[in-house]
């Protein structure tokens, strides 16, 4: 059994103009120790998927259908109190802006110690020792002194290290990292990504890494899920999806990313832009931009089906032909 199973997940926002579906029928699983990358353009539903799994959807957002199971047990229908225990102990979170995860009024040590003792009962002195070990583990120099400092005394990259320590100190088996390096400089980004990878590997923790940066995914993830307009377009092993994408959207996306190397005259261009939630096209959501669209794409919605060593949602793989 996979560590995390997400089945037909729907995330909805009721609005005056009707219910908007931000995540629409998304299914995937994450194995023990695996890093699953989630990519897609802004508004594709990446963060909402992560927030649903960790039980942090902001009202009026709500899970409108489907199931989320951790170790086979449903966690999508837990009470806020029960979910708070799962969060931290079993699932850790890292967000883009380290300041949202850190309380500016308390020293980093106090926050670490409290998190450790909430989930792993132990005397305060021992928790402090653990906290110092964690700061060292995430590469904070002189952790025995830094532990008594406040978040604002750390630089951006250092704060994100503290957040990683905070997400990991209760030894969760799944980490959800939503754009953990987007606010950081490239040289610092590389440090944080390497750290996250190493810690996951050493502790056999699994991670869902949400980012719009394909380069980060290429270097970090085992498998990648590509989202478009709230739906899963494709999922599969990273190297294969990047080199030989099955879905026309993934193919366009890969071609449109500039690369280091010989300089082409033009980048591959997908015309138009992703639709808003209020006007998702009928049939395949990608059809107005798809160079391979056939007549059926305008009214039939493709299902996610096994393709190659992964899965894709495209009518071209459903035996629909012209």
């Amino acid at each position: 059994m996979a560590l995390l199973e997400v089945e037909n997940l729907k995330v909805e926002f009721p609005t005056r103009k009707g219910v908007l579906t931000a995540v629409d029928n998304v299914s995937f699983s994450v194995e023990q120790g695996e890093i699953l990358g989630v990519v897609g353009e802004s508004g594709a539903g990446k963060s909402m998927t992560g927030a649903a799994v960790i039980g942090l959807l902001e009202p009026p957002g709500r899970i409108g259908g489907g199931q989320i199971r951790l170790d086979g047990k449903r966690i999508d229908n837990l009470s806020p109190d029960e979910m708070r225990k799962v969060r931290g102990r079993h699932i850790g979170a890292i967000f883009q802006d380290p300041l949202t995860s850190l309380n500016p009024l308390f020293t980093v040590g106090k926050q670490l110690i409290e998190t450790i003792r909430t989930h792993l009962p132990m005397p305060a002195a021992e928790a402090r020792k653990r906290a110092i070990e964690w700061l060292a583990e995430v590469g904070i120099p002189a952790p025995d002194r830094r532990i008594d400092q406040y978040p604002h005394q750390f630089s951006g990259g250092m704060r994100q290290r503290v957040v990683i320590a905070l997400a990991l100190c209760a030894e969760p088996r799944l980490i959800i990292a939503d754009e953990p390096t987007t606010a950081l400089d490239v040289s610092v980004q590389a440090q944080i990504i390497a750290l996250l990878k190493r810690v996951c590997r050493e502790r056999n923790a699994a991670a869902i890494l949400v980012t719009h940066d394909m380069g980060v995914i290429a270097e970090t993830a085992d498998r990648v899920a590509v989202m478009y307009a709230g739906r899963l377009a494709e999922i599969g092993p990273v190297a294969r999806v990047l080199q030989k994408p099955s879905h026309p959207y993934t193919a366009g996306l890969m071609g449109s990313i500039p690369r280091i190397g010989p300089r082409p005259d033009r980048l591959v261009q997908i015309e138009g832009s992703m639709p808003r939630l209020t006007d998702i096209p009928k049939g395949c959501a990608f059809n107005p931009r798809c160079p391979k669209a056939i007549a059926e794409c305008h009214h039939l919605r493709p299902e996610l089906r096994p393709v190659a060593d992964g899965a894709a949602a495209c009518l071209l793989y459903e035996g629909v032909t012209q």
């Binding site: 400089d185 590389a190 440090q191 290429a218 280091i260």
Partner: peptide, 21 residues
């Protein structure tokens, strides 16, 4: 150049630089 994540360098273990700007 060593630290940018690049599509061509699938699953590379990069050697991150120490220190911050």
């Amino acid at each position: 150049l060593d630290t940018i994540p690049d599509l061509g360098m699938s699953k590379r273990d990069c050697v991150p630089a120490s220190g911050e700007v």
